[in-house]
């Protein structure tokens, strides 16, 4: 019989819900690159999330490493706040390092 009553009720709850929780999938294409968001999948638990990410997003040799993150655990900025958050940076060109003169005889910059 199932081992753990508490776990069992939790699982019953997850399995009986209309849908499984959503996970975001991040794939690293090659060593040296960072993980990039590629899409999302549904899964009832962590192991399943990793299996599903592998089955759906690495079929055509897309990656060498997978991260999955519960979508609900991602804290996202609200589009309504866009002006306040990102507007101020738009007119501050002096923050870009484009005002330096690079001497001609300095190589490899």
């Amino acid at each position: 019989m199932p081992r753990n009553k508490l776990q069992k009720t939790q699982r019953e709850e997850i399995m009986s819900k209309q849908g499984w929780p959503l996970y975001e999938v991040f794939i690293r294409a090659r060593a040296g690159l960072s993980h990039r968001h590629v899409g999302s999948i549904h899964a009832a638990d962590k192991t399943m999330a990793l299996d599903h990410a592998r089955d759906l997003y690495t079929r055509r040799n897309e990656g060498i490493s997978i991260w999955v993150v519960k979508s609900a655990d991602i804290i996202a900025s609200d589009p309504i706040d866009s002006d306040a958050l990102f507007g101020p940076a738009a007119d501050k060109i002096y923050r870009h390092p484009t005002f330096y003169k690079i001497p001609d005889d300095v190589e490899n910059i």
Partner: peptide, 19 residues
Amino acid sequence: LRHAGHWLIRLGDGTDESH
């Protein structure tokens, strides 16, 4: 085998019905 094994554990050690 890995994928199916995960499912076997999930179903076997899952609800009374899945077990």
